[in-house]
């Protein structure tokens, strides 16, 4: 008998790429891919968390060609994907490059092969942050994020004067930009006292639960 399927209609080609996995889904049993996605490699981690397959990157460099920070990075976006493919964990995670990403998403918008480098970099940063409380992140970046999150936890909102002061304390760069403070004050752009929201207990609950969820996820 002649095959019935496809007589005068469009045949979907057989999926070879692995079925898409929704974000957060950790099992990939539906996938036809034989690529490693359960092991402990960086690629497997990225795939488990995001459903993105780092092996898709074919190193065209379009991400790095459009990256505003490429000129300052040791590892450009396409290098990041390459190092994941090669599982060079130490080399990739210890450097500053990951933290120079501005998440402007230009790479993701233009990636021809839908690798979503911005999301991949986010995932790696989260991983570094979680593994040792941000110790892997460069000092000034760590200081910024710590001050920022502490502020939210304490007040529910960002109180920029306090944020800047906290950041400066942590980095020790007390005097850079210090000249801007009077101008900011004069223009009414800096409040001197923080606003605290009423539902602070809610905010603390959110922080605690989210931190706990991360730890749970780590345990097998």
């Amino acid at each position: 008998m002649p095959p019935l399927a496809g007589q005068g209609r469009c045949l979907e080609s057989v999926p070879w790429r692995g079925a898409p996995v929704s974000p957060g889904e950790t099992t990939l049993e539906v996938s036809v891919s034989h690529n490693d996605h359960t092991g402990s490699t960086l690629a497997a981690h990225v795939r488990q968390v995001t459903g993105l397959n780092p092996a898709r990157c074919y190193q065209c460099g379009k991400c790095s060609a459009g990256c505003p920070m490429a000129a300052e990075m040791d590892f450009r976006p396409h290098d990041v994907l390459r190092l994941i493919q090669q599982d060079k964990r130490e080399q990739l995670l210890s450097g500053e490059s990951l933290w120079l990403c501005l998440t402007c998403e230009t790479c993701t918008a233009r990636c021809p092969n839908e690798c979503d480098p911005a999301r991949v970099i986010d995932t790696l940063r989260e991983m570094v942050w979680r593994d040792n409380g941000g110790a892997g992140a460069p000092r000034h970046i760590r200081a910024f994020h710590k001050s920022f999150l502490k502020q939210i936890r304490r007040s529910g909102r960002i109180f920029e004067f306090g944020l800047v002061a906290g950041y400066k304390m942590r980095t020790g760069s007390l005097f850079s930009d210090v000249g801007a403070v009077p101008g900011m004050l004069k223009r009414g752009k800096l409040a001197l006292t923080p606003t605290r929201i009423k539902g602070l207990d809610e905010i603390r609950r959110i922080f605690d639960k989210c931190a706990a969820a991360e730890t749970d996820a780590e345990e097998p």
Partner: peptide, 8 residues
């Protein structure tokens, strides 16, 4: 800061 460090 939250975006870069903790998705949830």
């Amino acid at each position: 800061s939250a975006h870069n460090t903790n998705h949830l």
